[in-house]
Amino acid sequence: MFRIRKSEVDKVNQDQILEILKETNVLQTGHFSLTSGKHSAEYMQCAQVLQYPDQASKLCNEFAEFIKENNISVDLVVGPATGGIILAFETARLLGTKTMFAERENGKMVFRRGFFVEPGQKVFIVEDVITTGGSVKEVIEIVQEQGGIVVGVGVLVNRSPEPVDYGVPLKSLLKIQIETYNPETCPLCAKGVEMKKPGSRGLKK
């Protein structure tokens, strides 16, 4: 059962969350070539905020407060690798629960390193960003396969163009839609704006 620690940080509103993401270079602007092949003027690199423990803690506190306000009992916080690992760890620290992470093995999300969910454990899942929600759905499946009970999901950034239904309460700290363009009709290409690829040396770290 969860044990909410005395709040170490104040609650933050949507504007403050957006400001944190801008200040820590999560929300980046420019001309980006995405893995889908499309282009965009914006890119979300959620790992950037994890460089700043104080800011990351403020965000994870929102998950903890959501759990408290909705009277959700939590025994374990799980995050998919790699984006959800630190967020799940900090959320669990604030709740006073255990934490672990799932990772891909041969393309499938699994628990390794001796991690397992005990039957009946109540599990809250935390992820950094969702677009289709597929990774979280995979984690839900392996938790349930081991007899765990998924009681909620928390995501830092919800980029899904359509509502995502996990069958449990979902807390999205920020909902945002980023416009993308086909290369042949990209207005940024037409203006000659320098192209950057996320993760490349040309992208500000």
Results as ranks from 00 to 15, higher is better:
5 R>L: 14
6 K>H: 04
13 N>A: 08
15 D>Y: 08
23 E>R: 13
24 T>M: 03
26 V>I: 12
27 L>V: 15
34 L>K: 09
36 S>K: 13
37 G>F: 06
37 G>K: 11
38 K>V: 06
41 A>C: 05
44 M>V: 15
44 M>D: 05
45 Q>I: 06
45 Q>M: 14
49 V>C: 11
58 K>I: 15
65 E>R: 04
66 F>Q: 05
67 I>D: 03
71 N>F: 03
76 L>A: 04
90 E>I: 14
93 R>E: 10
95 L>H: 00
95 L>Q: 04
100 M>C: 11
101 F>S: 01
101 F>K: 05
103 E>W: 00
108 K>N: 07
109 M>E: 06
110 V>F: 03
114 G>Y: 02
118 E>V: 10
120 G>Q: 09
121 Q>L: 05
123 V>W: 09
129 V>C: 11
134 G>F: 10
135 S>I: 10
142 I>A: 05
143 V>R: 04
144 Q>M: 15
145 E>I: 03
147 G>N: 12
147 G>T: 13
154 G>W: 12
156 L>V: 12
161 P>W: 02
169 P>L: 10
175 K>L: 06
175 K>R: 07
176 I>V: 09
177 Q>C: 02
178 I>K: 07
180 T>A: 12
185 T>E: 07
186 C>S: 09
189 C>H: 03
191 K>F: 01
192 G>E: 00
194 E>D: 14
